[in-house]
Design a protein around this nucleic acid. Sequence first.
DNA 1: CTGAAGTTTCAGTATTTTCTGAAAGTTTAA
DNA 2: TTAAACTTTCAGAAAATACTGAAACTTCAG
Lengths: 169, 169
Amino acid sequence: MHCGEMGSRWGFNRTVGQMYGLLIIHEEPLSAMQISEALNISRGNVSMGIKELQSWRLVQVQHKPKDRKEYYSPAGSIWEMATRVFEERRKREVDPTLSLLRDNLLDEPANQKEQYAQKQMHEIHDLLETVTHWAGELQSMSPEKLNTLMKLGAGVSKVINLKDKLISK
Amino acid sequence: MHCGEMGSRWGFNRTVGQMYGLLIIHEEPLSAMQISEALNISRGNVSMGIKELQSWRLVQVQHKPKDRKEYYSPAGSIWEMATRVFEERRKREVDPTLSLLRDNLLDEPANQKEQYAQKQMHEIHDLLETVTHWAGELQSMSPEKLNTLMKLGAGVSKVINLKDKLISK
DNA sequence: CTGAAGTTTCAGTATTTTCTGAAAGTTTAA
DNA sequence: TTAAACTTTCAGAAAATACTGAAACTTCAG
């Protein structure tokens, strides 16, 4: 139920959220029919939900021997799911904005007002670009490395200072 | 217009997104009436939108001498806006989940299935906690430090290796 | 006080999004 | 080739969300 409530905030709708929650919590893969019964939603809705989850690369289809039904389970570890949600949201929420900003910055400002507007857009663009680029680099690190880094927390700033000193010597 | 389309993805609705976009692009503060005319939306809707933006701590009210109207402008720099949106979204999207997970983990699992469910929830909980804790620490760093760190990108991993070597000596 | 100039609220309406279920499509065992 | 056992699609219904505008409220200059 909570996954449903949070669903929309996390980027999908109520039933999709519930479906995903159910799959994560349930050890065995579930058939569309089982999902529909467990959550009390129509069979067609399940089909659409699965499609949506697949577009997020969050579910896997499996087949059981002697059974024509399709069984669904979460794709990958919790960690992988997190990076996938993160990546997909970046694609949907950040990339379009970034590309629009870029287009806009190519135009020559026609007057004082447009110049100010561009200045602001430029700042937003640079910020988004730096952050998404960094996020990409972090994702390319191994989960273990990343974990060390996160555990280090703000302490990372001390390590960087240290590096600067060593280099300057 | 784009801010409107993106609005819902970014956590608010179309008109709120448009209003915020307008305020950012416009150098001078705007009155509610001006906003309503510029975006062609009702005066009442502007009032509700401003309230929403205030709940995100994204707009400021100003007064001009000899004028009873309220004038609105974005609160803080682009950087501050970003951290505010980030923080608010954490509050709305992550914190409730984290607290629900915690509650759930206090219950004694009644059977094998519940045990598995708890195992999964535990993993999600730990991941969310590590990430949000880290994000908090990063936000407490000065923007300049953070910028250095981001520019360093994946190179940060080398610096950490270096540190480990130094310590082991 | 008073009332003009403003803001907020909220019931009702319009719009958007989600969900259902029946029909169409697909796959495969025999 | 058939038909049973599934899955997908999609038009229309239901539900959720956003918007309007008029009434209520607030503030303050005179």
